[in-house]
């Protein structure tokens, strides 16, 4: 904030520094231009709204992942949680009124996240291990509670959600609006709220935080619980899009979420990362998938390209820290 953009650009090597510093946004813009040039279909409203619908679910869990990663942790359970909670929501929406079904799903998500949070914060378990266990448990519970097959919405409440999830407001898909609202909420929390400040402090130096009188355990606990609640929100959205909850949903989403956060410049050691950059990371991943689809590239090469982009983005960030 100390320098204006103009000052930054006019200093020696300024343009390059500026580009490197804001590399996520520039990669995004470059991809956007590239996509528009390479395909006629790209800039059609159908395609763009499809793109947004596709990324919203992963986007929402990426914000939860960002909060966890900011504290220096990781949450591997979110993909499986999406499956379990989508099934949960499908069951609930068929038996209770819609608002209650949504609220209960989110509370259950918060509760499942709390289990990880408890293990990490209070039992000092390594986040990787605790959430790996939760990942397996959630996936298993998803299959048990659905008896292995998808559960379809059968009530007017379910129908309402399905309509909501597949329609748009002012040309923006409703579920993307939910995603963007969550991004804005996270931005505000991280910038202007004590909660955000403290989780960044904890991630940048946990011991210094403890010695500054910060309730380190409480905040570490909370980020996992919030990540669970956001996984529930994502679950409600993806279930509603397809009108059903399936235990096969959210496969490997945790990895995409981690990738999005990392492409967004966050440090896996904690303490560094912003919501807007995570949004960019999500969009970049989505764009790559989208354009490769438009070019009829099969899904296996797509994975290779995704991996290459992650390496490229992280290498670029190296320059920034030097």
């Amino acid at each position: 904030m100390a320098l204006t953009i103009k000052q930054q650009l006019s200093s020696p090597g300024g343009l390059l520094k500026f580009l490197v510093k804001h590399n996520t946004i520039f990669i995004f813009i470059l991809l956007l231009i590239f996509s528009a040039l390479i395909s006629d279909v790209f800039f059609t409203s159908t395609n763009l709204s499809n793109l947004l619908k596709q990324v919203s679910g992963i986007g929402i869990i990426s914000i939860g992942m960002l909060l966890v990663i900011l504290t220096g942790g990781i949450d591997l359970s979110v993909g499986s949680m999406v499956a379990l909670l989508a099934v949960t929501f499908a069951i609930l929406v068929n038996v209770v009124v819609l608002p209650l079904a949504i609220i209960l799903t989110i509370i259950i998500g918060f509760g499942l996240g709390s289990v990880s949070g408890y293990l990490v914060a209070y039992q000092k378990m390594a986040p990787f291990v605790a959430t790996l266990a939760l990942m397996t448990i959630a996936r298993g519970l998803g299959f048990i509670s659905s008896k292995g097959s998808p559960i379809t919405f059968k009530t007017p409440g379910g129908e309402f959600m399905s309509n909501f999830a597949n329609n748009s407001t002012l040309a923006v898909p409703n579920i993307a609006i939910v995603f963007f609202l969550i991004v804005i909420l996270a931005m505000v929390l991280l910038r202007y709220n004590v909660f955000g400040r403290l989780i960044i402090a904890i991630g940048s130096n946990e011991e210094a935080s403890r010695l500054s009188g910060i309730k380190v355990n409480k905040y570490k606990f909370l980020v996992y619980a919030i990540s669970g609640a956001l996984a529930a929100t994502a679950a409600v959205i993806v279930a509603s899009r397809t009108n059903l909850g399936s235990p096969n949903m959210g496969m490997a989403w945790e990895l995409d979420a981690i990738a999005a956060v990392v492409i967004g410049g966050a440090s896996l050691n904690g303490g560094k990362g912003t919501a807007i950059n995570t949004l960019m990371g999500v969009l970049i991943l989505g764009l790559i998938g989208n354009i490769l689809n438009l070019l009829n590239v099969p899904s296996y090469p797509q994975q290779v390209v995704k991996g290459a982009i992650i390496i490229f983005a992280v290498l670029l960030q190296r320059f920034d820290s030097k």
Binding site: V194, F195, R197, A201, S204, N205, A208, S212
Partner: peptide, 29 residues
């Protein structure tokens, strides 16, 4: 090691003990 937050700004370092003094309801700063 445990005295300051090296990657954070001076402002964020100083404020870290004193949020009750600079934040209002719901923890907004």
């Amino acid at each position: 090691e445990d005295g300051v937050f090296l990657p954070l700004s001076i402002r964020r370092n100083i404020s870290v003990t004193n949020f009750s003094g600079i934040s209002g309801k719901l923890g907004f700063i």
